[in-house]
Design a protein around this nucleic acid. Structure first.
Lengths: 225, 225
DNA sequence: ATCTCATATATTATTGAAAATGCCTGTTGC
DNA sequence: GCAACAGGCATTTTCAATAATATATGAGAT
């Protein structure tokens, strides 16, 4: 997810990242039609290159591609959010359990480091000082990813990453900041990780995700979709 | 998965299905380099169109796309098979439980119908008479899909379908036919569904999948990868 | 007024060619 | 003999133009 830009990247790869990011962070609105000609100007690339990455995004589920009628940003709905949240919980919960089993010292280091960065950021966000949602969400991702990084399954990690990004889009369209609650839950998750307390971790993770879903649904006009 | 060809389909869509099928059924070998020019001739389409669907397949994980070096069929490995099998079990098990909860009469009908077709096919396979692995595997898919079709989550069903196809490729590269065992397990799964016996279903499903994995690993030269 | 059909416009899907990049080979210098 | 560099070939990546398809517009009939 949102990898920091690797040294060199092809034109298509750059455009892919930009469009993907613009969808996730709501600059391209859900349901919006994606006209090739307009995108070509906006992202400075040719239609063929565009079609390549739009197909990729369609396969990921961030855009829809009903045949012969072009592309549009994947629409959002409360049901879809709930399904994605449930999916995230299923994948992340399972990965968490396996990570707790297999995690070594190296893993603990990653978790502690990621939590430190996230916690600092959360403190800053609460001070209203320099709120940078994109960076904050990157740290949130890095923490959750670190927690499950010892699960031992690439397939699981990749599937989780794909779902996480879709989940993230919902959070961004209704810019939620459940600062204090989330921060406390992150703290608890860290403690659970270090003590390998899976039962409590699962519980907190469920509350963490469900809470965000409720918040997102409540604060946005999503119900009206 | 392997939808029966819809009435009209665009050139790209046709080529996509053919290549996808050729990968899953082993006509395009794992690790094989996919040269645009050769594919263009073989599938009678242009490079740009090809790149569109190769990008799609790359996003699905059936081909790899290391940047500036073209495409190749996704390689196989024992670890990857085990990860995919574990993933299938996680998704299918969860979906099964929810399906058992929510399944109505309509669902039971679908399950019974799908099982009937599959059972007939399995009988035919055992007679060595007209062995058609592609059709057999389609029915296998339809049965497993019917079982979880009442789970209530599109996201879950789509994610499961993607994983199932990758799993299927492993079965095809080492054409396994565990006829009698699989048939009996399918029968038990049907009974469990009608009786909503989730505990036993989970158990059988795990054995079903694990058994196939062991068989695939044992019968193929996959260990050497 | 509204519905239908034909025409025109806009948009997408597909193609083939040009530019960029990686890869192999053969040669030169040490 | 071996390593490194340069040139040429193979392949991929990107582009702009053509063909196919869908959407919008408007005239004529009911």
């Amino acid at each position: 997810m949102l990898k920091a830009t690797p040294p060199s990247a092809s034109v298509g790869e750059m455009a892919y990242r930009r469009i993907r990011s613009d969808i996730i962070f709501g600059k391209l609105a859900p349901g919006q039609k994606l006209k090739l000609e307009l995108l070509r100007e906006a992202y400075e690339t040719s239609v063929s290159t565009l079609r390549e990455l739009l197909n990729r995004l369609a396969s990921e589920g961030l855009v829809e591609a009903e045949g012969q009628k072009g592309f549009m940003v994947a629409p959002v709905s409360p049901e879809n959010l709930r399904e994605i949240a449930a999916m995230r919980l299923l994948l992340e919960g399972h990965a968490l359990a396996q990570s707790f089993e297999a995690g070594d010292m190296e893993w603990e280091g990653r978790v502690v480091a990621a939590h430190h960065k996230l916690a600092q950021m959360e403190r800053r966000m609460l001070d209203q000082d320099r709120a940078d949602p994109e960076l904050w969400k990157r740290y949130d991702w890095e923490f959750h990813h670190a927690l499950i990084s010892a699960c031992g399954s690439r397939v699981l990690l990749e599937t989780h990453a794909a779902i996480y990004d879709k989940y993230l889009r919902y959070q961004m369209v209704a810019v939620v900041f459940r600062g204090e609650i989330a921060a406390r839950e992150h703290q608890i998750l860290l403690d659970c990780a270090l003590n390998r307390d899976m039962a409590r971790a699962e519980q907190v993770l469920a509350a963490h995700i469900d809470g965000c879903v409720d918040d997102t649904l409540a604060r946005s006009a999503l119900e009206a979709c």
